[in-house]
């Protein structure tokens, strides 16, 4: 489904701030896999996502998505098959547009046979309302309200719905529950799990929560210093406790541990 082949990315090359964020990284992801990714700050997790999504282009190496070489395909084209959620719950929806308009915007882009001048009809509005009710947040009764009035948790849940309205080939979650209060975080994570499982979506999730890293998904990667330094799946992962993972993280990601202890809770 997704393959990174010897990908590297250096920021500010040739200056004093030069930083090699991704070092000769290779990764193969099968269809339907749900991978959780942990790593210290600056390990290259988000950079890897940006390379996959096309917000950044790799200096060397290749990116394949669904068997197709997308290394130089621009971001907005790749976005057709990639859904993305960020840490900032405000980033994925347009605050000045109503809930209905946000849904319509995404719906009209994925609807087959729609043209630039298509509008959402009455039946389709009802369909979107139904989809929205699946979030069980009562948002379906607030369709005409601007999204700016929603809470962070509600906006992130709506973003999740928008990103999966049309089942994406790949879903990238970049700490998408980290900025939410515990109750909202749990709710959004539950929704994520349900939607991903139900649709068999291939999914990559960055998290700082070790419990979440083991609880969700089918495979876990530990990243450090621009590389993947551990790749856990199957029995090995199943038998692992949060303590085991923390220990493994300390051994593999090594020197940054003192700082990370604060972050990994």
């Amino acid at each position: 489904m997704l393959e990174l082949k010897n990908v590297s990315k250096t920021f500010f090359p040739g200056t004093a701030d030069e930083k090699q964020a991704i070092k000769d990284l290779s990764l193969k992801v099968d269809k339907g896999e749900f991978i959780t990714i942990i790593g210290s700050n600056g390990a290259g997790k988000s950079t890897m996502f940006q390379l996959i999504a096309g917000s950044l282009l790799a200096d060397t190496g290749r990116v394949f998505l669904g068997g197709e070489d997308v290394t130089f395909v621009p971001e907005h084209i790749r976005s057709r098959s990639i859904g993305r959620l960020f840490q900032d719950p405000l980033s994925g929806t347009a605050p000045g547009l109503t809930i209905e308009e946000n849904l319509a915007l995404v719906y009209l882009h994925i609807k087959k046979g729609s043209s630039a001048f298509s509008r959402v009809g009455k039946e389709e509005r009802e369909l979107l309302r139904e989809r929205l009710s699946l979030l069980q947040m009562g948002l379906e009764d607030r369709m005409k309200q601007p999204v700016g009035l929603l809470s962070g948790g509600q906006r992130q849940a709506l973003t999740l719905l928008l990103a999966t309205l049309d089942v994406p080939k790949l879903l990238l979650l970049d700490e998408h529950t980290a900025a939410l209060d515990p109750a909202s975080a749990e709710k959004v994570m539950q929704l994520t799990d349900d939607i991903v499982k139900e649709n068999g979506i291939t999914c990559l999730m960055i998290t700082h929560n070790l419990y979440q890293a083991l609880e969700a998904g089918t495979r876990t990667l530990i990243m450090s210093d621009g590389r993947i330094c551990a790749d856990l799946s199957g029995e090995e992962r199943k038998n692992m406790s949060v303590d085991d993972l923390q220990k493994l993280f300390r051994e593999t990601a090594g020197k940054n541990y003192a700082v990370d202890r604060m972050l990994l809770t």
């Binding site: 907005h76 084209i77 993305r84 980033s91 994925g92 929806t93 347009a94 000045g96 882009h109």
Partner: peptide, 10 residues
């Protein structure tokens, strides 16, 4: 309204 959203969309 939200350039970040648009850049991450199609």
């Amino acid at each position: 309204d939200n350039p970040i959203m648009v850049r991450a969309s199609s």
